[in-house]
């Protein structure tokens, strides 16, 4: 498909989904699934317009973004550091790897009670849960990338006089970027799931909290505005990670750079 055609096709796909949604709700379709009480796109758009006029909506968006970016940044830094350490140092591997392997299968959202016990404020607990969600994909992506580095790159730098520190800076960190960005992309997706869930369970504000509040007062258009907001924010942050990854790994051979 030519590059010029791709964006219209993508836009048409979204518009078609909206059109089907509008038809199903406007016609009050009741088959096995029921659309007679389901808000249509026009209701949701109207509700979005109402909410966008209030500062509270934007405060919720900002709060969720601050939480996810803080947790994600911590996960990125510590995940890469722990991944490199456990892959390159036997000592660090023996010390940390068993701990990580036991903690990794625990869903981050199951840490809500732990977060409530550990942290003095909800805010810190939610950031912790977001961090825990993104940390393991980054850790695993980094560790695999370090182990997959061609030995010849490291040997070349060592025989040119490079110390272990220079090998780390000149070979390991740039060489693992493709794997790290794979982990960051997955981590960002999981982090959104967890930050929204944590806000729904224990938040006082934020998009997740507001969406759950709308549900409790049977404000279905409000619920769908929340869902659409989460989807859009998730898309934008994931796209930012993808874009940064592409910019930093231009050296990779790629058939299609779209």
């Amino acid at each position: 498909m030519s590059r010029l055609l791709r964006w219209p096709v993508r836009a048409a796909s979204l518009l078609a989904a909206l059109a089907v949604w509008q038809v199903l709700t406007a016609a009050n379709v009741r088959l096995w699934v029921r659309f007679d009480r389901f808000p249509g796109p026009a209701d949701v758009l109207h509700e979005f317009g109402r909410q966008a006029g209030h500062g509270q909506y934007w405060q919720d968006v900002a709060q969720s973004l601050v939480r996810i970016l803080t947790g994600f940044a911590l996960a990125a830094v510590l995940g890469v550091a722990a991944g490199v350490a456990t892959a390159r140092s036997r000592w660090a591997g023996d010390l940390l790897q068993p701990l990580f392997e036991v903690a990794r299968p625990i869903p981050a959202i199951a840490l809500v009670p732990v977060a409530i016990l550990l942290f003095p404020a909800n805010e810190q607990g939610i950031v912790f849960i977001t961090f825990a969600a993104a940390f393991f994909p980054v850790l695993v992506g980094t560790r695999h990338a370090v182990k997959a580095l061609p030995v010849v790159w490291e040997d070349a730098v060592r025989t040119l006089g490079g110390s272990r520190a220079r090998v780390l800076l000149q070979v390991v960190l740039p060489g693992i970027l493709p794997g790290v960005f794979g982990g960051l992309s997955i981590g960002m997706g999981v982090a959104w799931i967890c930050v929204i869930s944590a806000e729904m369970i224990s938040g006082d504000f934020g998009v997740g909290y507001r969406t759950w509040q709308a549900y409790t007062i049977v404000d279905y258009p409000g619920v769908l505005v929340g869902m659409a907001t989460i989807g859009l924010l998730g898309y934008l942050t994931s796209a930012a990670v993808e874009l940064a990854g592409r910019r930093l790994t231009r050296w990779l051979p790629r058939e299609d750079r779209s």
Binding site: V152, D155, Q170
Partner: peptide, 15 residues
């Protein structure tokens, strides 16, 4: 650095 090794494989750093 006094003893440099040149490899058969592609040992250039690709980035």
């Amino acid at each position: 650095a006094d003893r440099a090794l040149m490899f058969q494989d592609d040992a250039l750093l690709p980035w």
